[in-house]
C-alpha cells in the first residue's frame, strides 16, 4: 500500500511527535535541572527551558558525595535475582495451571492472581515481623524474597496468556513420539515461550526496580539502599531539596536501563513474530 506523503505526515509523524514530546518532556526537565546551578533554578527572570550557566557540580555531588554507584549495584542485584526467582516459579506454575489442567488448577490460578490485589501499604508491617524472624533485616535478601510476592502473580498471569496463545499441537506431537512431559516442557514449551518470558521479565524487572515501600521499610544502612530510596532519603534534607543531584540521579538510573530494554524489546518482538509464523 502506498501512502501519500501528507497522509503519512498527519497520520503518523504528527501524532508520534506529540506523543514523544509528552513522554519525554519530564526527562528533558530532569536533564535541564541536573545541569543548572541552584541559583539559576530560583531565578524567575531567566527562561527556565534553557541552561544559562551549565554546571557538572551536581554530577560531582552525586558521584562523589553519595554512594550512588553502590545503590545502582544494589538495585540491579535485587531486581535481577527477584526477577529470576519469580520467572522460574511463575513459568512452572503457569504451565501447570494452563496446560496440565490439574484438579484444582482453576482455584489455584485465581488464588495466585488474588495475591496481586493485596496492597503493600498494609502488608509491610506484618511482613516486617516475618523478615525479622527470618534474620533478613537490613539485608538485600529481604527484598529479593519479598518482591516475588507481587512479581509472581503478575508473571504467572502474563505467561498463562502466552501459553494460551501457543498451539498445543507441537507438544502433543512430541508426546506421541514418547517424550516425557518434563522433557517437552524443557525442550519445546520454554523455547516457544521465550518472547513471553522476555516480556514478563522486562515488566518484573521494572516493577522491582521501582519498588519503594518495602525497600524503605526493610533496609536501614546507607550501603544497602536501592537507588530510589538512596536518592530520596539522602538528597532531601528537611525543607531543602537538592534538585540538581536528585535529577541527575534519576536520569542516570533510568537511561541506561531504557537502552538495555530497547535491545530486549526488539529481540522479544522479533522472537514473538518468528515463533508464531512457523
Amino acid at each position: 500500500m502506498i501512502e501519500s506523503f501528507w497522509s503519512k505526515f498527519f497520520r503518523f509523524y504528527v501524532p508520534l511527535i506529540i506523543f514523544v514530546i509528552f513522554l519525554l518532556f519530564p526527562f528533558y526537565w530532569m536533564f535541564n535541572t541536573s545541569l543548572k546551578p541552584m541559583k539559576e533554578l530560583y531565578n524567575l527572570k531567566l527562561n527556565p527551558f534553557y541552561v544559562h550557566q551549565p554546571t557538572l557540580e551536581n554530577m560531582k555531588t552525586l558521584l562523589f558525595d553519595t554512594i550512588f554507584l553502590r545503590w545502582m549495584y544494589n538495585t540491579f542485584f535485587v531486581a535481577i535475582l527477584s526477577t529470576a526467582i519469580s520467572l522460574g516459579a511463575s513459568l512452572l506454575a503457569a504451565y501447570a495451571i494452563q496446560r496440565l489442567k490439574f484438579k484444582t488448577s482453576g482455584p489455584t490460578g485465581l488464588a495466585i492472581f488474588f495475591g496481586y490485589l493485596i496492597p503493600p501499604t498494609i502488608l509491610f508491617i506484618p511482613l516486617a515481623t516475618i523478615i525479622f524472624d527470618l534474620r533478613l533485616w537490613d539485608s538485600l535478601w529481604s527484598l529479593v524474597l519479598t518482591y516475588p510476592t507481587f512479581l509472581i502473580p503478575f508473571c504467572t498471569w502474563l505467561l498463562m496468556g502466552y501459553f494460551k496463545s501457543i498451539p498445543k499441537e507441537m507438544e502433543e506431537c512430541a508426546m506421541i513420539d514418547g517424550a516425557s512431559r518434563l522433557r517437552v516442557f524443557w525442550r519445546i514449551v520454554i523455547p516457544l515461550c521465550l518472547p513471553g518470558i522476555f516480556s514478563a521479565g522486562i515488566f518484573a524487572f521494572t516493577l522491582s526496580w521501582n519498588e519503594f515501600l518495602y525497600a524503605l521499610a526493610f533496609i536501614s544502612t546507607t550501603e544497602s539502599k536501592t537507588v530510589p530510596i538512596g536518592l530520596v532519603t539522602e538528597l532531601v534534607r528537611g525543607d531543602v531539596y537538592h534538585w540538581g543531584p536528585l535529577m541527575t540521579g534519576a536520569l542516570l538510573a533510568s537511561v541506561p536501563v531504557a537502552l538495555v530494554y530497547s535491545f530486549f524489546v526488539e529481540h522479544y518482538v522479533a522472537g514473538l513474530t518468528g515463533a508464531l509464523k512457523e
Binding site: F124, I125, A217, S220
Partner: peptide, 25 residues
C-alpha cells in the same frame, strides 16, 4: 555506634515498625 540517617518524615514509620515488631534500632 551505627547511625542511620533517613529523611525526617520517614523516621516515624521506621520507629513505628520497630515498636510493633519489637526489634530494630
Amino acid at each position: 555506634v551505627m547511625t542511620e540517617y533517613i529523611s525526617w518524615e520517614d523516621v516515624r514509620p521506621k520507629a513505628a515498625m520497630a515498636a510493633s515488631v519489637g526489634a530494630g534500632h
